[in-house]
């Protein structure tokens, strides 16, 4: 892997004005280099600003100090090269599964592709998440897990350089979540996307990531520790259960979250 960072978060602060001259410093001096094809997860207690980091990379929120560079280009606004999978899927309910993905593909790749190529392209991503049978259904007619698969397919269909996932499986039951995690790992091995996942689930972080970024608690949250997960891919959750490296990583995160940076219930 090249030494040059693909996505560079450089001394970033995020300050929210509170009115009356007061302000809330959500993030202080966050510094992180993410390599191409890497899967990185950011974990921390609620209120640690992990979603804020994702919004800054997405360009949905503005950086107060510092810079974020994607392939040496400043991130100033949202763009399709940084696709976002939203926590609540954000599918447009008046469009079918097919139309939701088609709308994104048409907008982003519409000028390079003919109509039939657009159709093939949309179908390729629908098949990637195994939803051929539901392509004409509306979001209101499918389960939460299926909706999130459509959200992932929509994000990947516009061929982003970085896939940003904001607690993508947080709203799902644990069986569905496991299923989607497997989907995601399989797809990422095919597509080689760079992925940033926000999570609060320790097992999810270890299972999916090459590195786990552990955040300190807010205000003025920053990166506390970075953990390398040295597990070969493809990963199988059953085999990992007693793997010493898996247990080491899991233990390190739990130690960080519940001992070093324990947080009382609000």
């Amino acid at each position: 892997m090249s030494a040059k960072p693909f996505l560079k978060i450089d001394h970033v602060d995020k300050i929210f004005p509170l009115g009356g001259g007061k302000e809330y410093v959500a993030l202080r001096d966050v510094q992180l280099d993410i390599k191409e094809n890497e899967i990185v997860s950011i974990i921390g207690h609620s209120g640690c600003g992990k979603s804020t980091i994702l919004n800054l990379i997405a360009g949905l929120d503005t950086i107060s100090n510092g810079t974020i560079l994607l392939e040496d280009k400043h991130i100033l606004a949202p763009g399709p090269e940084r696709a976002v999978v939203f926590q609540n899927h954000s599918l447009l309910p008046w469009l079918s599964v097919y139309q939701n993905i088609e709308m994104a593909v048409r907008k982003v790749l519409g000028e390079e592709l003919s109509s039939s190529e657009i159709r093939d392209h949309v179908m390729k991503y629908i098949q990637m998440v195994n939803l051929d049978h539901a392509k004409d259904k509306y979001p209101g007619e499918i389960s939460g897990g299926m909706k999130q698969r459509v959200g992932i397919a929509r994000a990947l269909s516009i061929e982003p350089k970085v896939l940003l996932m904001d607690e993508p499986f947080g709203a799902l039951d644990s069986l569905t979540r496991a299923n989607l995690q497997d989907h995601l790992m399989r797809i990422q091995m095919q597509t080689g996307n760079t992925v940033v996942i926000i999570t609060h689930d320790v097992d999810e972080a270890v299972l999916l990531s090459d590195r786990v970024i552990m955040m300190t608690n807010g205000p003025e949250a920053t990166i506390g520790e970075i953990l390398e997960v040295n597990l070969p891919r493809p990963r199988n959750r059953l085999e990992l259960q007693h793997n010493p490296e898996y247990l080491r990583c899991r233990g390190a995160i739990i130690e960080f979250l519940y001992s070093k940076f324990a947080k009382e219930d609000e």
């Binding site: 997405a58 360009g59 949905l60 606004a77 949202p78 763009g79 399709p80 940084r82 696709a83 976002v84 939203f86 609540n88 954000s90 447009l92 709308m103 994104a104 907008k107 982003v108 516009i158």
Partner: peptide, 19 residues
């Protein structure tokens, strides 16, 4: 959330209104 989808896809104001 829908407006964020529009921003990520860089919809024009016209497309945002109609879509």
């Amino acid at each position: 959330d829908y407006l964020n989808v529009a921003r990520v896809l860089q919809l024009s104001p016209f497309e945002r209104v109609f879509q």
